[in-house]
């Protein structure tokens, strides 16, 4: 497969666009990077399946509250709406970071990554606050099948966002040291893929857990 990709990349070169600044070695390097990006897509697919099983579990157990509190009773939609718009905005700002990178603007890139990370941190803060509120109201992960499924699904997403934050901070440090290289470019591209992906997962959490939960 790597061979085929090399061939097609070489073909595009032969297509005769003037600004050929990539030698043979360089070409191979880019090829490695695009292969790594593909590897990241495969990771995202496994994450799709992971969240799929958690969503399936939640949907199946949505009525099994064991006589305890239900989601409709305890969920406060206002905070959830706020965190939804925060995450949507951070998905956009991570895209702006990629645009700054494509322009070769290292400072802009780090700035927009920092804004994205701050929005992500705000999202996590709201989520932790919500979980504390729920536990105070008597809904813990052990209260009923509904709450087990709820905390596992929402918590797994929150964990993904938290991991993304650590990753993003590490990447900002690396960018400030190494600048925009083919390797850091690939890393920024995949972290922005990851971030958009988490936004998509959240939209489904928002729709299925929260909006349907309060209906």
């Amino acid at each position: 497969m790597a061979h085929a990709t090399t061939k097609s990349a070489a073909g595009a070169h032969g297509g005769g666009h003037g600004a050929g600044h990539a030698g043979g070695h360089h070409e191979e390097h880019h090829d490695q990077e695009s292969l790594k990006t593909f590897g990241f897509w495969l990771f995202l697919i496994t994450d799709v399946i992971l969240f799929g099983t958690l969503f399936a579990t939640f949907v199946v157990l949505r009525l099994n509250t064991d006589g305890g509190p239900t989601g409709a009773e305890l969920i406060e939609l206002n905070g959830i709406i706020a965190s939804t718009f925060i995450l949507l905005t951070s998905s956009f700002t991570s895209g702006v970071a990629v645009l700054e990178m494509n322009k070769g603007n290292k400072r802009g890139l780090i700035l927009w990554l920092a804004i994205t990370a701050l929005l992500g941190a705000a999202f996590i803060y709201l989520e932790v606050t919500e979980f504390i509120h729920l536990v105070h109201e008597g809904a813990t992960i052990g209260t009923s099948a509904y709450w087990s499924a709820f905390f596992t699904l929402v918590g797994t997403h929150g964990l993904h966002v938290s991991v993304g934050l650590v990753w993003m901070v590490a990447l900002m440090l690396q960018l400030s040291r190494r600048g925009i290289t083919p390797v850091t470019t690939r890393k920024v591209n995949i972290i922005s893929l990851y971030w958009h992906f988490l936004d998509v997962v959240w939209i489904f959490v928002f729709t299925i857990v929260y909006l349907m939960g309060v209906m």
Binding site: H13, H17, E27, V96, L99, T185, N189
Partner: peptide, 22 residues
Amino acid sequence: NTQARDGHGSHGGSLKSYVIGF
């Protein structure tokens, strides 16, 4: 387009398309 993307190892997209998507 393919060339430009290969050359810089980055994805396409402009600010306009990001704003529309947002």
